[in-house]
Design a protein around this nucleic acid. Structure first.
Length: 950
RNA sequence: GCCGGGGUGGCGAAAUUGGUAGACGCACCACGCUUAGGACGUGGCUCCCUCGGGAAUGGAGGUUCGAGUCCUCUCCCCGGCACCA
């Protein structure tokens, strides 16, 4: 091994020049021979500070692009720049630079850096979103949306970032703070442009199912869209005193089955009806004050403080459409104006939030769903009379000992709490006191509380010979002292009282099928029961299963079955300069009109003072004002907001297919040929933003017949995150940012590529600590491959080596499909070791090796290919898929009772008898058998032989 | 809290989908080369051990000839959503 590594700088420079000379990476989109493969990576924002983590995003997909080309596919692997955005503007404000120049300088630098990685990206189709030739089509598409009613201007509460001085989309607000700068967002009522993504919520959700994406990505989108199925129910509002009609309030609920338990109604403070109702309430000042306070609260303040607040609309009542009951009406900020109908029917017995509110405002709790428990030890018997009863279960605790009072049933051997039927009109607490006294003698009891609502318990009551349904009400008492009255002879014959410690309170010990609920309710203070069960106190529905009748109930009260979504319309207006101008003008009356297509691109003005303006910077442009006046007339005014940059990036992948076209946004024939994109690789931070927006855009364009498919991306891969060498997120603040230029200077681009490929599987959400040692190790591996060149000769390669090459080629191809380049590189390492064992390496074999190495280390492979007499470029060579001969022999693992005791080299078609005989020849096997008889043998030819001796 | 994804050596990870657990690397240890260090080479490297083996894939059970892989329960970590009715 004479060679001590290679001169990577020279090798890289020469190779990159050679590829440029051969024009290897300009994809011919119209090629008819090769099958197309569209591989997409998220195009970068030209921030100017490309760190080593960015390499991960480019070089690993590049390995795949190169591999696919060698497999004979016509690979489209394009790139561009997402070039509008705030940082350019902020830099401009800070340094007085021009945003366009700042952006262009950064792009120039990044093009060089990305090329230096040895990427095979196709720059000939580059798109730059801030170029008028691009954004003219962004504007054109926006106007298409406008024509379809998918772009709409309306007043709405919006999230405002005071630091960036612009509104934000919901997706850009994280925990009530601006996603970009962390400033707490404010809520403002503004007139803004929205794209109606909510119209597509259902399809965005449904179409996810068929996509072969990772489940966590799909789940994140599902959660973001947030579908819930329920009903809209209408409550009439009237004055309490005179029953004069005050209109109708529509509520959205997912639990219309609990309608009989609605004990009050809540409107969001911002609900449009409230304004009108104020005239009729007895406490208008209070209502106004509450609305004022809530409107001043930020999103974060509202969600941080979950204590319920609200104000009654005194004198207003709502009529329950199911029961006709009149119930009070409140406004409270736990009801959101922006979700559902902005109004809810409150069912404290079966909704935790309503329960909390009811407790605070002392509103009644009415149970209408009873959990169902069936006593499996005592099930209903056929042909027995069914008797329903309301009962109490008296639970008596002795606070001194912590024990509970039970009854031991003499004949039956049961242990239970004290139970008894409630007579018509009898008070439950009185019933319980009476029963406890009669059955146990204890009379000095303090009533503590009732444990939740009634429980529906089904069992066969042997002593009465009937099938029973008991609605059990659990009442908790505490023993005040041991005072005991005498217990009658009859009762004493049936059972005797005994004290149970807490550990005895289990279903195993106690004769109550509802023990789980009793324990749960004893442990924590009672709260809402939100599960399913049997309807009670619900008029004619009483006794029915809630899920069975839920939609019948909706129908019977004139409700409407609807789906509701958490996702809100996409707010796209930005009060910033460096973005795509919204191609809208306003007539003197203030009505919005599209800028006619002949005036596109609707250019971003340049005479803008964006450093001082507090409103939209475009408002300061004289040129824009004059332009509008000139084209549309006196009194017409421009739209001064720009579009969210996520609009620009929602369709860029379509533009790659015809990036220079001045007559259309893309090319229909090419869209048909190249869509959908086979694989889209990016970062997890875009799951509920870019990725969702792009899917929405694509569906809207599909409905406009502008694209041929309704989903843009077949597969989506989210890569892991590269941490600094200290295990922290790379950041200038920590001083742990790894500079790619330094690393590449020392180890070479190929070493970094191999390091990233080998580090871990790509499509996983892991965090990986950057390690110089890892790159060093990758470099050592490359040096070994380079050293092999010195041993290349003209001899033929052994069949064994050629077989190993073929198997490795297949292994890498399989791993590459799943982006598991870590195991692919491992296989290459094993193969290289095999090469190192040869005295002379055959040229053909070595060239095969270089072809396998080429996607990973494209520069070195090219250099060695040329050095050892390869033609043109290794990157034009095909993937070496040799035939793999079936091997005649295989290692069979010999086990005794499932434990490995040895191995055998056997013909793959060896029979069981032969295998057993051979195995018995192994000393370790005989020893393990220890003379015992073989009861059973399991033989999988070519794999395993298990001898079982009981 | 709800939903999703995961827990395998000191670390990154493998494991033909029920058939040799830890491939391939990093780090570490020993030896060799060397004046020395580095680089390189050879070997070792889950734990325990009386050197025959034994235990081990977060934990506890189960199914199976055989379980990292399948089932039940449970603990922990990561991600998403969260006053969404």
């Amino acid at each position: 091994m004479a060679r001590k590594g290679y001169d990577h700088r020279k090798v890289e420079e020469v190779a990159q020049k050679k590829w440029a000379g051969l024009d290897l990476y300009s994809t011919d989109l119209r090629d008819e021979e090769k099958e197309p493969y569209y591989l997409l990576i998220e195009f970068p924002y030209p921030s100017g500070d490309l760190h080593i983590g960015h390499w991960y995003a480019y070089v690993v997909p590049d390995i795949y692009a190169r591999f696919k080309r060698m497999q004979g596919r016509n690979v489209l692997f394009p790139i561009g720049f997402d070039a509008f955005g705030l940082p350019a503007e902020n830099a401009a404000m800070k340094n007085g630079a021009d945003p366009r120049r700042w952006t262009e300088e950064n792009m120039a630098r990044m093009r060089e850096q990305i090329r230096s990685m040895g990427t095979s990206l196709d720059w000939s189709k580059e798109v730059v979103t801030c170029d008028p030739s691009y954004y003219t089509w962004t504007q054109w598409l926006f106007l298409k949306f406008f024509e379809q009613g998918l772009a709409e201007r309306r007043e709405a509460p919006v999230k405002w970032c005071p630091k960036d001085r612009t509104v934000l989309a919901n997706e850009q607000v994280i925990d009530g703070a601006c996603e970009r700068c962390g400033t707490e967002v404010e809520e403002k009522q503004l007139t803004q442009w929205f794209l109606k993504i909510t119209k597509y919520a259902d399809r965005l959700l449904r179409d996810l199912d068929a996509l072969p994406w990772r489940e966590d990505i799909k789940e994140a989108q599902r959660a973001w869209i947030g579908e819930s199925e329920g009903a809209k129910l209408t409550f009439s509002l009237e004055t309490a005193a005179t029953a004069a009609s005050l209109g109708k309030a529509e509520v959205f609920t997912t639990r219309p089955d609990t309608i009989f338990g609605a004990t009050y109604l809540v409107l969001a403070p911002e609900h449009p009806m409230v304004e009108g109702l104020i005239d009729f309430v007895q406490n208008p000042a209070e209502v106004r004050a509450y609305r004022e306070t809530t409107s001043r609260k930020t999103e974060r303040e509202r969600s941080e403080n979950k204590d319920k607040t609200g104000v009654a609309l005194a004198g207003v009542v709502a009529v329950n459409p199911a029961s006709g009951e009149r119930i009070p009406v409140y406004i409270a900020d736990y009801v959101l104006a922006s979700y559902g109908t902005g109004a809810v029917m409150a069912v404290p017995a079966h909704d935790e939030r309503d329960f909390e509110f009811a407790r605070r405002f002392r509103l009644p709790v009415r149970h209408v769903i009873a959990p169902r428990r069936v006593d499996e030890r005592n099930p209903h018997l056929p042909d027995k009379e069914l008797v329903k009863r309301n009962i109490i279960v008296g639970i008596v605790r002795n606070p001194k000992t912590g024990n509970y009072l039970g009854l031991s049933w003499k004949k039956q051997g049961w242990i239970s709490f004290i139970t008894g039927g409630i007579e018509e009109g009898e008070d439950m607490v009185e019933t319980a006191r009476r029963e406890i006294a009669e059955e146990t003698g204890y009379t000095n009891l303090r009533y503590v509380r009732t444990l939740g609502g009634p429980v529906h318990v089904e069992f066969y009551a042997a002593h009465k010979d009937v099938n029973r349904i008991a609605y059990a009400n659990h009442l908790l008492f505490e023993l005040e002292d041991e005072t005991r009255a005498e217990v009658s002879k009859e009762e004493q014959d049936l059972h005797e009282a005994l004290w149970l410690d807490e550990g005895k309170l289990t279903r195993d010990q106690m004769d109550h099928a509802q023990m789980d609920l009793i324990l749960e309710r004893l442990r924590s203070d009672d709260c809402a029961y939100t599960d399913d069960g049997v309807l009670i106190n619900s008029g004619t529905w009483t006794g029915r299963d809630n899920r069975e009748v839920i939609w019948e109930m909706v129908e019977s009260i004139g409700g409407e079955r609807v789906k509701n979504y958490r996702i809100r319309d996409w707010l796209v207006s930005r009060q910033r300069y460096w973005g795509c101008p919204i191609p809208i003008v306003y007539d003197p009356e203030g009505a919005a009109h599209p800028v006619p297509p002949e005036h596109l691109p609707w250019l971003l003005p340049e005479d803008v003072d964006f450093t001082t303006s507090d409103a939209a910077p475009l408002a300061s442009s004289q040129e824009l004002k004059e332009r509008v006046t000139k084209l549309f007339g006196e009194g017409w005014t421009p739209e001064c907001d720009t579009l969210d940059t996520f609009v620009d990036s929602s369709w860029y992948y379509l533009r790659y297919l015809d990036s220079k076209d001045e007559g259309d946004f893309s090319d229909q024939a090419m869209l048909k040929k190249w869509l959908p994109i086979e694989r889209y690789s990016g970062g997890s931070e875009h799951t509920t933003m870019h990725l969702l927006y792009a899917r929405f855009f694509h569906k809207a364009l599909y409905d406009l017949a502008l694209v041929p498919e309704s989903e843009p991306f077949v597969e989506r891969y989210n890569r892991g995150i590269i941490l600094g060498p200290d295990g922290q997120k790379m950041s200038k603040r920590w001083g742990n940012v790894v500079n790619p230029d330094d690393v590449v200077k020392q180890y070479g681009a190929d070493a970094v590529r191999v390091y990233y490929a080998f580090m871990a599987p790509y499509n996983e959400s892991g965090h990986y600590v950057w390690s110089d040692k890892g790159v060093e190790s990758a470099r050592r591996f490359l040096d070994r491959i380079a050293s092999l060149a010195d041993t290349v000769g003209d001899a033929d390669a052994s069949e064994a080596l050629m077989q190993m090459i073929a198997r490795t080629a297949r292994k890498i191809a399989e791993d590459a499909e799943r982006f598991k380049f870590n195991t692919a590189v491992a296989a290459l390492m094993v193969l290289v070791r095999e090469f190192e064992g040869q005295e002379e390496v055959s040229r053909t074999a070595y060239h095969d090796l270089l072809r396998l190495v080429a996607p990973f280390a494209p520069h070195l492979a090219e250099h060695l290919w040329e050095e050892t007499g390869g033609e043109r470029s290794v990157h034009e060579a095909s993937w070496p898929e040799g035939a793999i001969a079936a091997s005649a022999e295989a290692t069979v693992i010999v086990q005794v009772n499932g434990k490995k005791r040895g191995e055998l080299l056997l013909a793959v078609d060896a029979g069981e008898e032969e295998a057993v005989a051979a195995a018995r020849g192994l000393e370790a096997v005989e020893k393990a058998l220890a003379g015992q008889e073989i009861a059973k043998t399991v033989y999988v030819p070519g794999r395993i032989l298990n001898l079982v001796v009981v």
